[in-house]
Design a protein around this nucleic acid. Structure first.
Length: 586
RNA sequence: GCCCUCAUGGCUCAAUGGAUAGAGCACCGGUCUUCUAAACCGAUGGUUGCAGGUUCGAGUCCUGCUGGGGGCGCCA
């Protein structure tokens, strides 16, 4: 937000170093800790160490760095908007004029509103593939992390200045679908789903799995059915189309509940034929070897790359000629780039598929596609139960989304009833929904992608502490002040009082939003945003407690009203990047 | 056997290679006649799994070890 001033400072520091033959590399600014003031900081340790090495001197780096910092501090001419400069323990700390800079930050937020934090266009078209559910199966909290993470990454990339295409890739065919249809035809023919469609589909799939294991004739019958599917038997095709649609309707309900939208849907069934053509191409190019009927068609990546036990072998077609996940994924990757002329393609898929994704990318590279380097597997860890137990429908340990949401919403509703009994029931319901969903999303986004999320009912339903409701509540408190301001939010005005430390802290947090969005986008880490949102809420709560707004002197009150409005906006924008809504009241 | 990943207070997690490792939960003690107490304040609790190395500086990077999780030719 203060790039220009920062550049002026850098120019001076560079000139100083050049004049004294000091080997300055890049200047990396950071925030000043512990100061209670607002500013930026740069250290001179690296420079000092490099200098000593170049000149062959043995010196005390810390002391020498302090000398340099001190000397620069004395020589520096501060640009407008800076108050003070000092050298501390090898760091050069430059303090902003809090009045000038806080005005600028607050004005920027209240001018840009929802767009605050929006980065300039990077002219990059990015496709993010996420969710990838299988039709005819259940949807539980294990699948939730993917949707919530993928959606948030899309929001963040978009806000950072990318053009984002949200893609879903549905597993609408394969053995699991055939097994489902076998069970349906044999035991549930003519039935239709009711209520929670996805739950109903999932239950039938669980039954199919059980019967497949228990019934001796099942295996042969299922294989027979797979054959009929392969030959496009009209009855089977019709049944597939109808039941597949049930799942799609069920998913649509779930995405709608979660507030997630997709720009483009891909289906496994649509890339099956083209995938087989890719396999032919791989074989003719000598990349894949066809060892049928003894073995399958495979790409022996280690042989091709000269590596040992690294890329292993990617099987691209079964020995009976039927397609595999890889068959279709190769085709899909190509289709994406050809159809949309992407600059980047991101796959949000859990970490267990890391090797597989590397194999796909490597195979595409061997095929000569130059865009392969722009494919990225965004790997995230799975959601487990306490004791590191993986959810399993077989063991009946899965937690269903609807059950969780119902329970969370009920608890949130009880709290709203207690806090705000006068609200009408529709509003209460809406608040409870936003709070419950927010808590759930936040708990999955406030952990690093590489960390396993342990799902715990009590923790998931705990709305206190570092959780979404805390942040939402800060936004609500800000709103409450604004609602009571008789003349609305004052227009831009100069600051003519000394800001208190908590106000400075709050404004600093707000000012960090744009940079944190860029950082989160670069690393695909919503965690940075969830941390910032919490810090913002915490800073606002400090402000709320220590700084009266409506009761303050007019000139103080007016600027604090603007701080309150900007705080709410910053909180709303951050939560929105996480896919979380901020209620007006709670 | 090979590869990936994780290890930070009792528990769950943060921390651009940088200044004094921060929160939340739990536990203990306080705060509503003042903008919503879903809040706030205070206390307790750490040789960042172990051993080396790189660096002016390591929770962070490298190597090895220990322990947990995951993956490794016809599941997705």
């Amino acid at each position: 937000m203060f790039e220009l001033e920062q550049q002026q400072l850098e120019t001076q520091i560079k000139a100083y170093c050049v004049a004294r033959d000091l080997p300055l590399k890049d200047i990396s600014w950071s925030w000043i800790p512990f100061s209670g003031n607002w500013g930026i900081s740069v250290s001179f340790f690296q420079l000092t160490a490099d200098d000593a090495r170049a000149k062959g001197l043995k010196i005390n780096v810390a002391a020498r760095a302090q000398e340099i910092a001190q000397s620069i501090a004395e020589a520096m001419i501060l640009p407008d908007g800076f108050d003070r400069i000092e050298a501390v323990r090898g760091y050069l700390n430059i303090y902003f004029s809090t009045r000038a800079f806080s005005k600028r930050v607050i004005d920027a937020v209240l001018t840009e509103r929802d767009r605050f934090g929006q980065g300039e266009s990077k002219h990059q078209k990015v496709m993010v593939e996420f969710s990838q559910p299988n039709t005819h199966k259940a949807f539980h909290v294990g699948h939730l992390r993917n949707v919530i993470l993928g959606n948030s990454v899309c929001n963040i990339l978009e806000k950072a200045g990318n053009e984002v295409i949200r893609a879903n890739y549905l597993g609408d065919i394969g053995l699991h679908v055939i097994k489902w249809m076998w069970c349906y035809l044999k035991y549930h023919r003519g039935e239709e789903p009711s209520g929670d469609i996805t739950r109903w589909m999932g239950d039938l799939y669980a039954e199919a799995t059980r019967r497949h294991e228990d019934e001796t004739e099942a295996e042969a019958e299922i294989r027979d059915l797979f054959g009929r599917w392969d030959h496009r038997d009209p009855e089977i095709t019709a049944l597939w189309e109808r039941t597949r649609q049930w799942s799609l309707d069920g998913f649509a309900d779930i995405y709608s509940t979660l507030g997630v939208k997709f720009d483009h849907l891909y289906f496994e069934s649509e890339v099956e034929d083209s995938g087989k053509e890719i396999v032919d191409e791989l074989v003719s190019k000598g990349i894949a070897v066809d060892e049928r009927p003894v073995n399958a068609v495979a790409v022996k990546l280690d042989d091709l790359c000269g590596t040992n036990e690294k890329y292993r072998v990617l099987v691209v077609l079964r020995s009976d000629g039927t397609s595999l996940y890889a068959t279709k994924d190769l085709s899909l990757a190509i289709k994406k780039f050809e159809q949309f002329h992407l600059d980047r393609s991101i796959y949000v898929i859990d970490v267990r598929q890391s090797l597989y994704m590397q194999q796909i990318f490597k195979t595409l590279e061997l095929m000569g596609y130059p865009w392969t380097k722009n494919c990225y597997h965004l790997a995230y860890e799975i959601v487990n139960l306490p004791g590191n137990v993986t959810m399993s429908s077989r063991d009946g340990t899965v937690v269903f989304l609807q059950d969780l949401l119902n329970e969370a919403t009920a608890r949130a509703l009880a709290i709203v009833e207690e806090k705000n009994p006068d609200l009408d029931s529709g509003t209460k319901q809406s608040i409870a929904h936003k709070v419950a969903l927010g808590a759930l999303k936040y708990s999955m986004l406030s952990r690093d992608n590489t960390k396993i999320v342990t799902f715990d009912w009590e923790a998931a339903l705990d709305f206190n502490g570092q959780a979404a409701p805390y942040i939402q509540y800060a936004g609500v408190r800000a709103n409450s002040i604004l609602r009571k301001a008789e003349n609305g939010i004052p227009t831009a005005l100069a600051v003519n009082y000394d800001l208190t430390p908590v106000e400075i802290e709050l404004v600093e947090m707000i000012s960090r939003v744009p940079k944190e969005i860029q950082r989160a986008a670069t690393e695909c880490k919503p965690l940075y945003i969830s941390n910032l949102a919490y810090d913002l809420a915490k800073a606002f709560n400090d402000f709320y407690r220590q700084c009266p707004v409506l009761q303050a002197d007019p000139q103080v009150r007016d600027f604090r009203l603007r701080i309150s409005a900007a705080s709410r906006q910053a909180i709303v924008n951050c939560l929105s990047l996480l896919g979380i809504e901020t209620p007006e009241v709670m």
